[in-house]
Simulated scan of single mutants.
Amino acid sequence: MNAADVMTGNVETVAPDDEVGEVLARLADVNYSGFPVVEDGRVVGVVTEGDLVDLFEVEDRVLWIPIGLPPLADTLTYAFDLPGDDVDIAAHAEDPISSVMTADPVTVDADDSIDALLDLLADPESDINRLPVLEAGELVGIVTRQDLLRGLNRERDAGGAA
């Protein structure tokens, strides 16, 4: 089994100059959480819901309070979301998606092994959830963690070894 066996083809993409607001609207209409960013037929980035949420996160509204009296008790730190103004989504709606995307994403070739995909998708430090699949440098599909699990499950059910 290889990447081509588990990938999802016909991948929806966005362009680097697509506006954040457009991409948010598209994400609301699909059942996945990110898009490859393609320019001139080449994958130049990936944008995810997480990237867009980070854009609107207000860091100065969180108050961190240490609780406890060392050495008598462990000190725990609690975060409290302070009341504040609503996040102004319109302020970023016209920003290009290139301003929030992950540039130069990790990609795989269509003939890469399942073991190679597992190594990439299970690595907690890189925390990758989707891998654009390339063939001769062109985007032909995408493999998500869920795609990989489905493929491994099919292989197991068929009685083969993954």
Rank of each mutant, 00 (worst) to 15 (best):
D95I: 00
V30A: 12
A110G: 02
V106Y: 05
E125H: 11
S33Y: 02
A73N: 13
D109P: 00
L121E: 06
V58Y: 00
I89K: 13
L139V: 09
V87N: 03
P132S: 04
V47G: 08
E135G: 07
N129I: 07
L27H: 10
T75L: 03
E22F: 04
A136F: 12
V43F: 09
E125A: 10
T77S: 02
A93H: 07
L82Q: 14
L121F: 09
L120I: 15
L139C: 09
N10S: 09
D5M: 04
V143H: 04
T144Y: 05
I65N: 04
L69H: 12
A103C: 07
L69P: 00
V58G: 01
P96V: 04
E138K: 14
N129S: 14
L139T: 10
N31M: 03
E12T: 07
P70A: 13
P83M: 10
A103T: 15
R150W: 12
L117F: 08
V100N: 06
E19F: 01
E19K: 12
F56I: 14
G137F: 13
D88C: 05
S126L: 09
M7F: 00
V133T: 08
E19S: 10
E57N: 02
V20L: 11
V38P: 06
I97V: 15
V6P: 02
G159I: 08
H92V: 13
G34Y: 02
I67H: 10
Y32C: 04
D18R: 03
L139S: 10
L82I: 10
D111W: 00
R154K: 15
V14G: 08
D147W: 02
A15F: 03
S126T: 14
S99K: 10
S33K: 07
D81P: 00
L52I: 11
L76C: 00
D60A: 08
V23W: 04
D127G: 10
V46T: 11
H92P: 03
L24E: 15
P71T: 13
T107C: 12
T107Q: 04
M101K: 08
P70V: 06
L131K: 09
G84V: 11
V47N: 07
T77C: 01
E12M: 13
A161N: 12
T13I: 13
P124C: 11
G141C: 04
V38W: 06
G21A: 07
R42V: 15
L118M: 14
L120H: 05
T107L: 08
V58L: 03
I97R: 04
D119L: 11
A28E: 15
G41D: 09
V38H: 09
S113P: 03
R145C: 08
A158Y: 04
R130P: 02
G50E: 01
D111C: 00
